[in-house]
Computed example of a mutant assay.
Amino acid sequence: MMKGTLVTIQIAIVSILLAIVMTGVATALRAAPYRIVRWIGNVYVEVFRGTSLLVQLFWFFFVLPLPPFDLKLTPFTVDIVGLGLHYGAYGSEILRGALRSVPGGQYEAALALNMPASARLHRIVLPQAIINALPPAINLMIELLKGTSLVSLITLSDLTFRARQLDEATFKTAEIFALTLLIYFVLAQAIAGVMRIFERRVSSHVVVRHTIPRAAS
């Protein structure tokens, strides 16, 4: 069970990192000034958000090795790519909503100060948007953790796969799957705890950053 737990942790961490990257990439594509670029970002989000994660994993694992793709991926790589792309699409929607939640007066004030677009984004918009995006992002990360249980269906020895093996060998179904539930719960609470600490630090940093100039003025 511990070996399977370590595999699950590895998959979750790397998939979360890939999902964060894809969230930023997809959001940037969908906000681009060119229609074709926006179309590419929208297609990515709608396809991965509108189809089953399990079917996506099967597609990467069973279809890509066939002609004309001839692309063979290890089960671990398939899991990382599948989970990262799938939840990155949902993350893009969260980030886009958070960006829209920033009050319009913030944009107008930045324009009045003649701030460049990059400075407006990094100093005014993104810090506030990240605060708004973090609570739903924490839920999405926990969903990704639970989604790792599907990787057992493509022969990867994660926690769920090990639990099924032990169940078949010992027939202690109640004890094994109760322990499996407990391990997933502990991992989810660990993710939530780390992200809440990060959320508090980001929030305090943004509050101080926006309060000091006002007090000085």
Rank of each mutant, 00 (worst) to 15 (best):
K172A: 12
K3P: 07
L150T: 05
T23N: 03
V202E: 10
L18Y: 07
I191S: 03
V206A: 02
L181F: 13
R209E: 09
S101L: 06
V7C: 10
R200L: 11
T148W: 04
M141F: 13
F177R: 01
S15F: 01
K72P: 02
K72T: 14
S15E: 11
L111Y: 07
G97D: 03
L153N: 05
P68Q: 09
I16T: 13
R100S: 12
H205F: 09
K146I: 03
V125C: 03
A112C: 13
P135V: 05
I138D: 09
L18W: 09
L57C: 05
I212P: 01
F161S: 02
V78C: 09
V78A: 04
T27H: 05
L144K: 00
Y90V: 00
V63W: 11
G24Y: 09
L111E: 14
T5R: 02
A192D: 11
I20F: 08
A119R: 13
K172E: 13
P67F: 12
F161R: 09
L57M: 11
L83H: 12
L83F: 14
Y107S: 07
A109K: 11
Q189C: 09
L134R: 03
A129M: 04
Q128Y: 02
G97L: 04
Y87G: 00
V202S: 04
N139A: 15
R123I: 07
R196Y: 12
V208F: 10
N139L: 03
R200M: 12
I94F: 06
E93K: 04
L166P: 01
L182I: 14
N114H: 10
P65V: 12
